[in-house]
Design a protein around this nucleic acid. Sequence first.
DNA 1: TGTTGGACTGCTGACTGGAT
DNA 2: ATCCAGTCAGCAGTCCAACA
Length: 273
Amino acid sequence: MEDTQRQIARLLPDIIRGADLEKATVRTLQKSLEDSLGRDLGEHKNFIRAEVEHFLKGAVTKKRAALDEEGSKGKKAKAQKKTGRGKTKELVDPTRPKGPKGAYMCFVSARRSQIKDANPDMTFPDIARELGVEWKTMSEASRHRYEQMAELDKDRYTREMLSYVPLSDEKMQELREQQSRRKAAGGLQVMYHCSPELTAFLGGAKTINRKELTTRIWKYFREHNLMDPINKRFIVPDTKLSKLLKLQDGERFLAFTVSRYLNPHLVKKVESQ
DNA sequence: TGTTGGACTGCTGACTGGAT
DNA sequence: ATCCAGTCAGCAGTCCAACA
């Protein structure tokens, strides 16, 4: 019984997606399932109906959300694309205890890695779907185990909340500023050890970050008049630069690609910044 | 809305001159 | 005024389920 329902739950989404929804009924979907499984599913009629309703409810919710989003964005859509997901999450107190896990979350935590180990090729959404199917078709006894785990986690949450002291407004403000600084800096502030050749080129600097290096190298282009007068996007390197970037004799390069040539000279990150 | 899991995608930041 | 070229670390968001 449980296996059949599991098979139904697994097959149904694809069957619904492939069906003509103008004409489809629970009965026709059941027929398609029977064809796929090669047996009568009359005794699972109610289960199939519940699954269909569940699937359609989910699809409608998603569609509505998409339409809402579309409508609210309107003509701003293109402008917002520039900033992409841009929405920065409101910073939450990182010391606040994590919320209590429900029974399903306990089940997910315990079972996900097992499924992944047994099926290394399964994608994350596939695993999530499988977990949903397993959860829905799980026996009461098995589910009870996870409900107990959820009870324990609820206790853990209560205990931690009792001893939790929220961070002060000042501390939160400091964290927000830290976050925005980190975001603004990106990976460009990361200090690297220079190769001996780069150290010599820079006049002795043993460490540097990408921001500084880009600035210095563009300064060098200008000071040594290395930009191609016909097309200033190209750099005609002098011997010193040519040697540093390991270029062929007479090889020019697009100025914007200079970081690619410099990469080998940024040996490794400087520890404990 | 936040919670679990982690691979994946895509944006952001600095730098510049030329092209549109 | 804005976009484009290239680099990449770090981060945010997405995917998906069910539940509190």
